[in-house]
Computed example of a mutant assay.
Amino acid sequence: MHDQFPGLPPDPFADDPSDPAAALEGLDPGIPLDDGERLAVEEDLADLDVYERLLAPRGVLGLVVVCEDCNDDHYHDWDMLRANLKQLLVDGTVRPHEPAVDPHPEDYVTWDYCRGYADAVFRYNEPRI
């Protein structure tokens, strides 16, 4: 399933009949996004593309997001976040995945930082993205 969403780590239990997560598949099906939610995710994907083009060359590896469930920072590289958003469009859910191993927080920025940075670049410069 993860091959459908490049950027997500490979499923270590792919094609394993004893996959411990197999029992969860039927318990929590994704809820299809309504038109407004779908539009918001598509806009996030478009924004993500711009942010990556502006910030990756400056050494930013991705985004940090505060998890609503555990209240911890979760670090997502550009590809993983893109895959998560695409999966949300297709499935209405995002499957769990392993967090980044020993991330360096200074290499990640927030969505708000990205928005502000992009606004400044587009307002005061002629960006080449």
Rank of each mutant, 00 (worst) to 15 (best):
D47A: 15
A56R: 15
E68F: 02
P96V: 10
R115S: 03
T93D: 10
P32K: 14
N71H: 11
L89W: 06
Y75D: 01
W78C: 05
R82F: 01
V94S: 03
T93F: 10
E106K: 11
D19A: 06
D19M: 05
A23Y: 09
G59W: 07
L88C: 06
R123M: 09
V90Y: 09
W78F: 12
L39M: 14
D72L: 13
P29C: 07
S18H: 14
Y75N: 01
P6V: 11
G36A: 15
A40S: 12
D15Q: 08
A14G: 01
Q87D: 06
V94F: 03
A14K: 13
P127W: 12
A100P: 01
A22H: 09
H104W: 01
T110S: 15
L27W: 07
R95P: 00
D44R: 15
D72V: 03
C67K: 03
D28V: 09
P29G: 06
R128L: 09
D112Q: 13
H97I: 02
G62W: 00
A83E: 01
L61Y: 03
V50T: 14
F5P: 00
P99D: 10
R128E: 14
L85F: 12
R82Q: 06
R58M: 10
C114T: 11
D19I: 04
H97D: 07
V94Y: 02
G36C: 07
I31V: 12
A21Q: 08
A100Y: 09
N125H: 14
V60C: 05
Y124T: 08
A40G: 07
R82G: 01
V64L: 12
D91Q: 14
E42L: 13
L33S: 02
D15C: 02
N71Q: 12
G59F: 06
A21P: 00
A14N: 04
Y124P: 00
L39C: 11
D16K: 13
M80H: 10
L63D: 00
C114Y: 04
V66K: 15
D72T: 07
G30M: 07
C67R: 08
D49G: 11
R82T: 04
H74C: 03
V121I: 14
D16C: 10
A21L: 11
I31F: 07
V121F: 11
V60Y: 02
H76F: 15
P127V: 10
F5I: 10
L48S: 04
V90L: 08
L81C: 06
P17C: 07
P99M: 02
G116Y: 10
W111G: 02
Q87S: 15
G59C: 05
C70I: 04
E106F: 08
D49M: 07
Y113L: 01
P99Y: 05
D73P: 01
L33T: 03
I129T: 14
P103F: 03
I129V: 15
D44I: 05
V94R: 11
P57F: 10
D79H: 06
I129N: 11
R128A: 13
D112R: 13
G62Q: 05
L85D: 03
D19K: 08
E98F: 03
D35G: 04
D11Q: 06
P10W: 06
G116I: 03
T110R: 08
V121H: 06
D11S: 08
N125S: 13
R82P: 00
E25G: 02
L63F: 04
W78T: 04
L24Q: 12
D79E: 09
P103D: 05
H2C: 07
D79N: 05
V90I: 09
